[in-house]
Each structure stands twice: as C-alpha cells, then as structure tokens.
Design a protein around this nucleic acid. Structure first.
Length: 426
RNA sequence: GGAGAGAUGGCUGAGGGGUCGAAAGCGCUCGCCUCGAAAGCGAGUAGGUGGGUAAGCCCUGCCUCGUGAGUUCGAAUCUCACUCUCUCCGCCA
C-alpha cells in the first residue's frame, strides 16, 4: 500500500511511477475522497471535543447536586450529529482503503523503464548450457520413461496440472528441499520455519495477493481459508501488527512449503511437464530489513538463491525486471532463470524482490529505532530459494545422458542415499 | 462438536458508569550514589492520527483497554454479536 500522505503531497510523482508500471489508477477520485474525509474528520473532532468537555462538566454538576438537564439535552443533539458524521467518515474511509489496496507499488529508481518482459535487462550469467551430441529429451519424457513422473495417474486422482512423483523422482524432490534448507540455514543464516498452508484473508491482504488477485488463489469452500500461493504469505505475516526492535533487524527466515496457484489467466501456457502446476514445492527466503539496508539485502538474498543453482551446477542467468514486468507489490525484482534444454531458453526459477514498505504498511509491520523515537515501517523482501519442481526439471534435462539416464549432481548425492545416477524403472 | 473461564500498556496484574489512557509490581531508560558494579534513592517509560510553531525530546485536539455494534450527557467498566486463548468432555492423525 502506498502512503496516502505521499499521494496527497506528490500526486505527480505517484502518477509517474504508476505509469511506469503500466497501471491505470484514478488518483483524482482517491484524492477527492481523502479531502472529504479529512474535512469531515475535522468537524466531528471539534464536536467530540465539546462533548467530552461538557460531559465532564455534567459529572461535576451531578456530584454537586445541581441541575444538568440543559446540557444533557444539548449533548443529545450533538450526539446525533456525531453519529451521522462518523457514519459518513466510515464510508469514506472504506472507499479510500479499497482504492489504496488496489494501487500497485512504485518502481525503484534503478529499475529500467519498459512495458513488458522484452525490456528486462540481463545482469549476469553463470555456467553455460550443455551441448548434447544426441537427441536431448524434455523432462516430461525423461521423467515418464524413467518412471519418475506420472502425469496420467495425477490426472486421474486430481486433474490437469498435477504431478505424481515416484521412486527416485519423489526422493529427488525431497532431497532438493532438504539440500536447500540446509544451505540457507547452515550457511546463509536463515531461521527455518514451517508455517500453515491455509491462511485467513487478512494475511493474504498483508502481502498483496488480495483483494486484487482473488481469481488466482484457491479458497477452501467451507471455512474461507486461502491456500498459500507461496510461503512468502504466511512468513511475511508472522510479524503482522508487531513493532520489532531495530537491533533485531535484519531478520532472515526460510521455509519450505507446498504452494497452490489457480493461475486463471495462464491456461494454455506451459501445459506439459512440471513447469506450471496447481501445486508445487518451493523453499522461500524472507527478510525484514531496515529501510536504509534493504537494497543491499536484496543483493545478498539474490546471491543466496543463486548459490543453490551454482552448487547444483545448473546454468542460469540473473535478469533485472523492467517497470512493466514487475509484480504488483514489488519495487525491484531480480528473476533467476535456469537453462532448460526443452525450452531452448532460460526459464524463471526464482524471483527476488524488495517490496520496501509496501507490504509492511498493509500488514502494519514496524520497528522502533534504536535511539527511541517514532516507529517506522520495515522493508520486506523475499525470493524463491528456489522453486523445487522446476529444479527437478532442470536437473533431469541438463544432466541427462545418451542412454536416457540422469546423473545426480554431486551436491545432491548425500541427500539421495549416495545414488549417482537414475537409470530406469526396476 | 458440547460446557465453562478469560482477553487491560514490553510483561504480571488491579479497576465493574464520571479528572482512568488506566493503580501497583517487574522490566527498560536517564540521573544520584560508587574506583566500578550491585543494592538503594529520584525521575521517566503504550500506540495511532490531526493541528499549532521556523523547527523541536514544546503546546494541543481526536481515537484506541480483543473486534464490531448498542445503551448513556458520559463506557475499560452495562447489553448484544463475533474472534481468539485457556480448562474439561467428545472426536481424531
């Protein structure tokens, strides 16, 4: 959420930022609502002030045994006025909040200007795509041929965009989760969390999924809970409505969760294989940082995610998203894209963002400066560290051998019971 | 799912219509004392949002005692609904 004060004081700058992001927002209407609210608030506060004073006086008169009927009568009328004004203000407030919740974050000044993914900037590359002197297979063929992935039975028990992992395939998924968590907790200083997968509406609003993206979310029919689309949602919200100590910042959390996405608008894209699923696994990194450190924290968070791919020996590149390609809540985003032979291209496997105070304002997450003084909003960041299903796909495809087997990356072997190669169904 | 109890400031915990945004204790901060520390003594110590002032650790309005509504001139205090926590019972991996 943007700061209404900023919008009020600097509507042109906000408009400019929104344009960069490609958002259409009726700022005039918002400002009108705000002005009216402030005007009526001034009125009602004057009335309340008077009522408070007179009520005190009534108390004194009663104690002294004197008559207070005139004042009481007058205040009855003032009370009616206050009630009417309060009601109007409540209505204005609700409308204002609705509008604010639907305005996206503004891009940071270092974000390149552009309308869509074509304007994204490659920042760096690591490794080089493998050259195969045999017909390379896509992971959906490798996985099925080796008995690791069963899309047909997943379709039977659930439906499209679900996968059943089997044998070493299932173990590979589990091994990756453990490998990633061990790396981030053991070497990168993150605290491991295991949060609920179902959350309430306030939590979804806190991180920015709602109210705008209702159709992308799964909702549980009989109690209104939402299935989390990413661990970012529960983990960022653990400090909702809290005032943190400055000396406790930055806070680093990592969590493995399943993630659930309806992806209403994505029908027809990435229909084969593990790339786009209704349920997938992800290890997430979340940070709470002081505002003046958040961009340094974004760099290190991105490096932490990259380290996963390096250790697995997967070629990747880092892309700085342009203003028009960034998500609703983000001020700056680096995508990590892993090389996928079946796409003959790099494919997103992690998205690392600084939300500045956009989420903190929605979720009311603040800190008190060490020297005392006014509370400030923290900056929140997160990034995938990394998406597990896509990593499985990348390993299968990049580590495939001419005989259709798959070599296990060395870093993963301890997690695979020493297995070095997946050769086929028993 | 059933029955009961509860929700107050960083924490414990009083207050049950009128100078209560709130006793007391703990904690914390500052000062005194000390070579230093502890103890002791003194002072301060919730959040939000407006206004005043050139600005402020200065003055000031309004709101907040789980949330929302109601009664009243006036609500932490009375009424209703909801949420959450705890205890017991039932069910359950």
């Amino acid at each position: 959420m943007l700061d209404i004060k900023q919008i009020r004081a600097n509507p042109e700058r906000v408009r400019e930022g929104l344009t960069k992001k490609g958002a259409q927002v009726a700022l005039e209407e918002l400002l009108q609502t705000d002005a009216r609210r402030r005007e009526q608030l001034g009125r009602v506060e004057t009335l309340k002030s008077r009522r408070n004073k007179v009520s005190e006086e009534v108390g004194r008169l009663k104690k002294a045994g004197k008559d207070s009927e005139t004042l009481t009568q007058e205040m009855r009328e003032v009370g009616q006025e206050i009630k009417a004004l309060d009601e109007e203000i409540r209505g204005l407030q609700t409308r204002l909040e609705e509008q604010l919740l639907n305005i996206p974050n503004l891009p940071h000044e270092s974000v390149p200007l552009g309308p869509n993914a074509s304007a994204n900037q490659e920042v760096r590359r690591w490794g080089s795509p493998p050259r195969f002197d045999f017909p390379a297979k896509a992971h959906w063929d490798l996985g099925v041929d080796l008995g690791l992935l069963d899309f047909e039975r997943a379709g039977k028990i659930s439906g499209a965009r679900f996968t059943l992992y089997r044998g070493p395939g299932a173990r590979l998924e589990r091994a990756l989760i453990n490998f990633m968590l061990d790396l981030h907790t053991g070497e990168h200083g993150y605290t491991e969390l295991f949060p609920p997968y179902m959350v309430n509406r306030e939590t979804m609003i806190g991180t920015g999924q709602l109210p705008k993206f209702e159709e992308d979310m799964f909702r549980v029919a009989n109690n209104g809970f939402y299935l989390i689309p990413t661990a970012e949602v529960p983990v960022t919200n653990i400090h909702r409505d809290e005032i943190l100590k400055e000396e406790d910042l930055p806070l680093y959390y990592t969590a493995y969760t399943a993630c659930f996405r309806a992806e209403a608008g994505a029908a027809g894209r990435d229909t084969r294989g593990l790339i786009r699923q209704h349920q997938f696994n992800k290890v997430e990194l979340v940070k709470f940082a002081r505002p003046d450190h958040s961009y340094a924290e974004l760099e290190s968070l991105t490096r932490n995610a990259e380290e996963v791919l390096k250790r697995l020996g997967l070629p990747y590149r880092v892309v700085l998203l342009c203003s028009g390609d960034m998500s609703f809540a983000s001020a700056k985003t680096y995508d990590l894209e892993v090389w996928l032979p079946s796409y003959n291209d790099y494919k997103e496997i992690s998205s690392c963002s600084n939300f500045e105070e956009f989420q903190a304002r929605r979720a009311n997450i603040r800190f008190r400066p060490a020297g005392g003084g006014k509370t400030e909003f923290v900056h929140t960041l997160n990034g995938s560290g990394v998406a597990v299903g896509r990593t499985v796909a990348a390993i299968m495809e990049n580590y495939q051998n001419p005989d259709g087997s798959i070599t296990i990356p060395e870093a993963l072997r301890p997690y695979m019971g020493g297995l070095t190669r997946i050769t086929g169904p028993k």
